[in-house]
Amino acid sequence: MKNHLSPAIRLTVALLILTSVIYPLVVAGIAKLAPGGGAGETVTVKGRVVGYARIGQKFTEDRYFNSRPSAVDYNAASSAGSNKGPSNPDYLKAVQARIDTFVVHNPGVQKSEIPAELVTASGSGLDPDLSPAAAMIQVRRIAKVRGLATERLNQLIDEHTKGPLLGLFGPSTVNVLALNVALDELK
Rank of each mutant, 00 (worst) to 15 (best):
M136Y: 14
I9W: 01
G51N: 06
L25Q: 14
R152G: 03
F102T: 03
P24R: 10
G108L: 09
I9R: 01
V104P: 00
G38V: 09
I30A: 15
L165T: 11
G163T: 08
Y74H: 03
G40S: 04
Y74D: 03
L15R: 06
M136F: 14
D129L: 04
P107Y: 02
G163R: 12
L177F: 02
S67H: 01
I55R: 11
A116Q: 14
I137N: 10
A76K: 13
F65I: 07
Y91R: 14
R152A: 13
R140C: 06
D184A: 05
A39P: 06
A77F: 10
A31M: 15
V174K: 06
V145W: 01
V139Y: 06
A76V: 08
L153E: 07
I22C: 11
P164F: 05
G108F: 07
A53P: 11
F65S: 00
G51I: 00
G37I: 15
I17C: 12
E113G: 06
V104F: 00
K2S: 15
L179A: 03
A39C: 08
G123P: 07
A34F: 11
G147M: 01
S79W: 01
G36F: 08
N83M: 15
Q110C: 08
L118Y: 10
T161I: 09
A8H: 09
K46Q: 14
E117P: 08
I142G: 01
L118Q: 10
G108S: 10
L16S: 15
E61Y: 11
R48I: 14
N83V: 13
Q96C: 03
A71Y: 04
G40Y: 05
L25A: 13
I157Q: 04
D100H: 05
P89K: 05
